[in-house]
């Protein structure tokens, strides 16, 4: 695995990478204009790109790591690498957001690897303290259960569910961000959601 921040968007070799994800990410990049301006040193664009990406990156890292403080560090490090990358970004090869997700995922993997064995994720703490206005306290309780169930997933399955369900990445972008094939991604998602359904079976009506 490349050092975080030096990521290219080719697919990883090895199991699950038999067929590269198609490069449809080349078509359009909604961040292209901002990235160009950041590359020219426009601090207004830096603020705009940060405002656009910071919530996504903190959510991604928080759901991966189960720790808000660490998630904020990952988000900041990812954005610093984004600002550094902007002047040399090669447009048309991949979406900037996909690359940024790959950076953040690799930073999360590094942190998870450094943790002591048995260090429990505290995903229970990662629930919005305010009740959803339309669903009241029950949503908070369900959110706690979902967080706990996600914490029990193997890391790769958790990555797949987080990227596709919570980050709304398409299957190709998610596969590229994780460095796997689209088939491997689909397999991870199926197993992950099956495990979640089993863990939450008393709530699935």
């Amino acid at each position: 695995m490349p050092r975080p921040g030096t990521e290219t968007l080719g697919l990883a070799a090895g199991a699950g990478a038999a067929r590269p994800a198609p490069a449809s990410a080349r078509l359009e990049d909604p961040d292209a204009d901002l990235v160009r301006r950041v590359g020219r040193g426009d601090l207004v664009a830096v603020r705009a790109l940060t405002a656009r990406k910071l919530p996504r990156l903190t959510s991604l890292a928080a759901r991966m790591l189960g720790d808000f403080a660490e998630a904020e560090d990952v988000a900041q490090e990812s954005l610093i690498r984004a600002w550094r990358q902007a002047p040399v970004w090669r447009f048309g090869e991949a979406r900037f957001d996909t690359w940024l997700h790959r950076v953040a995922v690799n930073l999360c993997r590094d942190r998870l690897r450094r943790r002591r064995p048995g260090g429990a994720d505290d995903l229970d703490a990662l629930v919005d303290p305010g009740p959803a206005p339309d669903r009241g306290l029950e949503a908070r309780d369900v959110g706690d259960r979902v967080a706990a169930a996600m914490a029990t997933l193997p890391p790769r399955q958790r990555e797949a569910v987080v990227l596709c369900h919570y980050q709304d990445l398409g299957n190709i972008e998610a596969a590229v961000a994780l460095g796997i094939s689209v088939e491997a991604l689909e397999s991870l998602l199926s197993r992950g959601r099956r495990a979640l359904r089993a863990a939450l079976s008393d709530l699935v009506r």
């Binding site: 919530p55 928080a62 305010g130 979902v146």
Partner: peptide
């Protein structure tokens, strides 16, 4: 079945930065 699980997953909300 998938729709029911989707609904549960949506309940896990995080505060904005």
């Amino acid at each position: 079945e998938a729709r029911a699980l989707d609904g549960l997953l949506e309940a896990w909300r995080l505060p904005q930065p």
